Amino acid sequence: MSEQLTLTVNGETRRTATRTIADLVRELDLLPEKVAVEHNGEIAPRSRLAEIALSDGDMLEIVHFVGGG
């Protein structure tokens, strides 16, 4: 079993076994191509979400885009 990380996501503490931002976004039932992510105070390029590793204590703000009209 994978070690659990403790993250702060949009101001709330969350435990996860995911290891990348893209995996976390999917765990939240969001599509990586439809989000903007701030990781520890810096904007994470959408093209690199699958490469950026998460660490215990990371802080993320995730905003998802919603279509409408």
Rank of each mutant, 00 (worst) to 15 (best):
E61D: 11
E27N: 08
E38M: 06
E27G: 07
Q4I: 06
L28F: 12
K34L: 15
I52E: 03
L30T: 11
D56V: 10
N40R: 12
I62N: 00
E42L: 08
E33N: 14
V9A: 06
V35P: 08
A17V: 14
T20C: 05
G41V: 01
K34R: 15
E27Y: 07
I62Q: 00
G57M: 09
E51Q: 12
S55R: 13
H64S: 14
V37K: 01
L54C: 02
S2I: 09
S55C: 09
L28H: 10
R26W: 09
V63T: 13
M59L: 12
A50E: 14
A50R: 07
V66L: 13
E51F: 03
A36T: 06
G57C: 13
T6G: 05
A50W: 03
E3S: 12
V66Q: 12
D56L: 10
D29Q: 15
G11F: 08
R46H: 05
T16L: 03
Q4V: 11
M59V: 15
E51I: 00
E38Q: 10
P45S: 01
R14Y: 08
S55K: 11
D23M: 08
E42F: 02
R14T: 12
T20I: 05
Q4H: 11
E3V: 09
L7E: 04
T20W: 01
I62L: 04
E27C: 03
R14K: 13
N40Q: 09
D56R: 07
V25H: 02
G41Q: 02
M1S: 14
V63P: 08
L28R: 07
L31A: 15
T16C: 07
L60K: 02
L60A: 04
G67D: 11
V9C: 06
L24K: 05
V9W: 07
E3T: 13
E61G: 00
R48P: 01
E51N: 06
V66S: 05
R48K: 11
V66K: 03
E38R: 03
G57L: 08
T16I: 07
S2K: 12
D23W: 00
N10Y: 10
L5Q: 09
E51C: 00
I62F: 03
L28Y: 08
I43L: 01
E3F: 05
E61H: 05
L28C: 09
K34E: 11
G57E: 12
E42Q: 14
H39C: 00
L49P: 03
E61R: 04
G67S: 10
E33K: 12
E51M: 04
T8Y: 07
L31S: 15
E38C: 03
L31N: 14
T8W: 08
K34S: 13
L7M: 04
D56N: 15
R26T: 14
L28N: 06
